[in-house]
Design a protein around this nucleic acid. Sequence first.
DNA 1: TATGAATGAGTCTTCATTCAT
DNA 2: TATGAATGAAGACTCATTCAT
Lengths: 216, 216, 216, 216
Amino acid sequence: MNLPPKPARDAAATQRRILEAALTEFSAHGHGGARIDRIAGAAGVSKPMIYNYFGDKEELYKAALRESYVQIRQGERQIDTDHMAPEEAIRELVRFTMEHFVSKPWFTSMLNTENMRGGVAVREMDHLSEIQSPLIETIGSILDRGVAEGSFRPGIDPTELYITIASLCFFPVSNKHTLRVVFKVPIDEDWLTRRAEEAGEMIIRYLRAAPNGGGS
Amino acid sequence: MNLPPKPARDAAATQRRILEAALTEFSAHGHGGARIDRIAGAAGVSKPMIYNYFGDKEELYKAALRESYVQIRQGERQIDTDHMAPEEAIRELVRFTMEHFVSKPWFTSMLNTENMRGGVAVREMDHLSEIQSPLIETIGSILDRGVAEGSFRPGIDPTELYITIASLCFFPVSNKHTLRVVFKVPIDEDWLTRRAEEAGEMIIRYLRAAPNGGGS
Amino acid sequence: MNLPPKPARDAAATQRRILEAALTEFSAHGHGGARIDRIAGAAGVSKPMIYNYFGDKEELYKAALRESYVQIRQGERQIDTDHMAPEEAIRELVRFTMEHFVSKPWFTSMLNTENMRGGVAVREMDHLSEIQSPLIETIGSILDRGVAEGSFRPGIDPTELYITIASLCFFPVSNKHTLRVVFKVPIDEDWLTRRAEEAGEMIIRYLRAAPNGGGS
Amino acid sequence: MNLPPKPARDAAATQRRILEAALTEFSAHGHGGARIDRIAGAAGVSKPMIYNYFGDKEELYKAALRESYVQIRQGERQIDTDHMAPEEAIRELVRFTMEHFVSKPWFTSMLNTENMRGGVAVREMDHLSEIQSPLIETIGSILDRGVAEGSFRPGIDPTELYITIASLCFFPVSNKHTLRVVFKVPIDEDWLTRRAEEAGEMIIRYLRAAPNGGGS
DNA sequence: TATGAATGAGTCTTCATTCAT
DNA sequence: TATGAATGAAGACTCATTCAT
C-alpha cells in the first residue's frame, strides 16, 4: 500500500492508520465480510493494537462509520456558492454532490452497509452535529436568495431538497454495477456528469416560481 | 412455521422453498452474513439438500438474486396506465414504484448487496430479458402519448427516466435508518407517500413542454 | 489413549467420549487451563462436535462437573454396611471414603476448581438429587442402629457427620503435594490407609455413648 | 484505591505492592486465570516493572505462593497457649485455625491452586523452614503437658494431629460453595464456629487418656 | 527506575461443506 | 430423495511478554 512511512511508537498516528484501513475494509466488504486481519495488515500494525485502541470489531466499525461521515462532511464544506446566482448555485450543488459521491465511493458503501444492518450503529452515535450536512444550511440560504429575487417558489424545505439531490446522485453511483448489466447503460464519468446536469435542470424547474402571467 | 404443507419427495417444491428462504436470508443479512444453516432451517430441509440442488453458497446467492429480480419484475407487470392521461400515468408510476420498494424491502437489500460485491453475480447472469423492467416500455409509450398530445417535451429517454424515478424512490427507502438519525426525518409511510407525490410533481415539471409563449 | 474403538456416526457414543475427555481435562487443568483442543483430541473428534453437542466451554464444564458428581455418587452406592455392627460400619465408611477419593482424584480436583470459581456452575445445576450423596442416608441408619443398641450417643446429624468424614479424607488427598513438601510427610497409599484408620477411631470415640456411670 | 501513598522510585515498596497484588490475583483466579494486567493495575505499576522484578508469571506465582505461606505462618505465631490447660489449649487451637482459614481465604485458594498444579512450585521452594507451621511445636508442647498431667494419651504425633485439625477446618471453608448447594447447609460464620467447637470436642475425645479404671 | 507502544502465539468459536447411510 | 454426523479452515479476540524511550 501507499501509506506514509510508518512512524514508530506514535499512538495517535497508529490509531489514524487503523481507522483509515478500517474505513477502506468495511466499505469494500461490509461489516460481515470485513476482516480484522486485513485491516491490521493494511494499517501495518498487529491485530492486538486494533483491539487495544478500538475495543472490538463492532466499535471499530462504528468509528469507521463516523469517520466516513466526518470526511464526507468536511468535503462538503469546501463548496462555496455565496457568490453565485441562486439557479447556478443549485446546479453547482448537484454537480458537486455527484462528483463527491463518485470520488468517495466508500461513503455510499458505508451507508448501504449501515442501513442493511438496520442502523444500529448510527443510532448509538453521539455528537450528531459533526455528521450532519453543512449543505442543509447552504441550501437554505440559496433558497432564500432565490425566493427573494423572485426566481424560486417559497415553501421548499432545505432538508427535503437535500434528500432529493442526494437521491438523484446516490442511486446511479451506488447501483452502477447492476444498472450497467440490467439496463446496459454505459455508466462512466461522462454519463454520470450528464446525469448531474439533467438532475440540476430537473430541480431548477421544480423550484422555479410560476411565470408571472400578469399584465404588469 | 406456517409454510405450505411439505410434500415429501417433491423436488420442485423443495427447490422453491429453499429459494424463498435464501432470498429472505440474503436480503436480511447480506452475502457475508447469510447462514446456510438458517436457510435450511427456514426452508425445512437439511443442509445437504441445498448443496444438492444449488451447488454452493455462491450459486444459491445468484439464484436468490435472480429470483429477487424476477419477483420484482412480475410485480411491475401489474400496473396498467394505458387508460390514464400521460401526466397522471407518470404520477401513478412514481407512486407505484415507491410503494413497490416499500412493500418489497428485500429488493433494495439485494441490490445493495450485489453492488457492494461489485456486481459479480449479475454479470454472470443469463436470460437477462427476464430481469429487465417492463416499465421501460410502459414509460416509452406514456412519453410518446404525452409528446403526441403536446404535453411533454420530446427527446426524453425512457431508460433514463426510469432510473430517475428509481433514484427518487430507492434512496429514501433504502437509507431510511441513517436518514432518520442524521436528519431527524420521521420516515414512515406517510412521509414516503408525500415524497412520491413531490417526486411525481418534479418529474412532470421536468417533462412538460415549454408553455407556448403565444403569438410572439 | 486407551479409548474403546471409535464407533463412527454414533451421536450418543460421541457425546460420552467428549464428556469423559472433558472431565479428565478440566480436572487436570482447571477451568481456565483446560483446552478445547486437547479435549477434542482425547475424545477423537473434531472441535465443532464439542460445540455442536455441548454449546460452549462453560456448558461443557458444567456437564463435566455434574458428571463427576454422578460418577462419585454411583460409586458411593456400592458400599453396603447393613450387615455390619454400627461401629464397624462407620469405620468401613471412612475407609471407603478415603479409598474413593484416592482412586478418583478427578473428583477432588473438580470440587476445588468449582469452589475456586465461586460455585457458579453448581448453583445453576438442576436435578440436585442426582448429585447428593446416598451416604447421608446410610449414615443416618447406622447412627440409628448405634443409638438403638446403646453404643452411640443420640443427636448426631448425619449430614454433619458426613462432612466430618469427607473433611478428614479430602484434605490429605487433595493437598498431598504441599503436605509432602511442607511437612515432609511421606504421603502414599499406606500413609493414607493409616490415616483412615485413625480417622475412623476418632469418629467412633466421638460418637460413643458416655460409659454408663454405674450405680446411679 | 486506598493504597499507601506510592513513593516514587522505591524499589522495595514497589516489589511489595506487586507481591500483594499478585497474591490477591492468583488466589482469586488461580494460576491460569490470573492476569498480569490486573496485577499491574492493582499494584499501580506498569507491566514491565513486574517482569523487571519477578522475571515471569511463573516466578511471580512462586513468590506469591511463598508469600501466602509466610503470611499465614506469621499469623499462626500470634497464638499463645502456654498459659492454658492442655484440653483448653487444644480447643483454642482448633478455634484459632478455623478462624484463621476463614479470615484469610486466599490461603486455601493458593493451596488448592498449587496442589492442582501438582506442587511444582512448592517443590522448588527453598528456605522451607520459613513456611513450616510453628503450630507443630506448639502442639508438641501441649501434648507433652497433657501426657504429663495424665489427661492425654501418649504416642500422638504432633504433625499428624496438625493435619487432622487442618483437615477439619480446611474442607468446610474451602468447599463452602459446593457444600451449600449440594447439602443445603447454611454455611456462615456461626455454622463454622459451631463446627470448630465440635471438631475441638472430637479431637479432645480422641486424645483423652482411657479413664483410669479405678481400684478394680 | 519506569512506562506507553507493540506483538507472536495461541484459544475459543463459527461456518461452508462433505460423508455415510 | 433425504439427512444426521462430522470436519478443515478460518475468524474474532486474548495474553504473556518485549521494545524503545
